[in-house]
Amino acid sequence: MTDDRVGEALRAYQRARLTAERRRSELANAIGQAVVDRGVRQADIARQTGYTREHVRRLCNDYVERKAKAEAEARAQQPVTP
């Protein structure tokens, strides 16, 4: 037999975890855009977020890789014109 309150709490926890993962991804993209695309200093982002500069650097490297992959995929889907 299950307890309805346990089930409700579990579902709420799972929703919160998914939301946190989505927000973490949004934050990583925002950091990458700020540093890579707009020239904000990594040290300023580290100060604002509390992350280490090394962590900010890793997020930026991941952003650059994701951006390059998305651009390559977009080019690959463009029709070839003779």
Rank of each mutant, 00 (worst) to 15 (best):
E21R: 04
D44F: 05
A9T: 10
D44C: 00
L59K: 05
T52M: 01
V6E: 12
V56D: 01
L10I: 15
R75M: 12
R57L: 04
V6K: 12
Y63F: 01
S25F: 04
V40M: 04
D37F: 13
L10D: 10
R23N: 01
T49K: 03
Q33W: 14
A72F: 06
R23M: 01
T81V: 13
K67A: 09
P82S: 11
R38V: 14
L10C: 03
I31G: 02
R15D: 13
E21L: 07
E54T: 13
L59Q: 05
R22H: 11
R24N: 04
E73K: 08
V35P: 01
D37Q: 10
E8T: 12
R24A: 01
G50H: 07
R57Q: 03
R17F: 05
R57V: 02
E21D: 09
L18F: 07
I45K: 09
P82I: 15
T81Q: 11
D44E: 02
H55W: 02
T49R: 05
T49S: 02
T19I: 12
P82W: 11
Q33A: 15
K69L: 13
V64M: 09
I31V: 02
R58H: 09
Y63E: 00
T49Q: 07
E26V: 07
A34I: 03
V36C: 09
Y13V: 07
A9R: 08
L27W: 06
A72G: 11
R66S: 10
M1V: 15
T49N: 08
G7F: 14
E65V: 06
G7C: 11
R58T: 10
A34N: 06
E21K: 02
R17H: 12
T52E: 00
V40F: 01
E54A: 15
H55M: 01
C60S: 02
Q78F: 11
D4E: 15
V36T: 02
G50W: 02
R66P: 13
L18G: 04
C60P: 00
Y51I: 07
H55D: 09
D4G: 07
A74P: 00
R24Q: 06
A9I: 10
Q42H: 03
A12N: 05
K69G: 06
G39H: 07
I31C: 03
V35R: 05
C60F: 02
V56I: 03
A72Q: 15
H55R: 07
V80W: 04
V36E: 08
L10N: 11
A74M: 06
K69R: 12
P82M: 11
A16S: 07
K69E: 15
R24V: 02
Q14T: 13
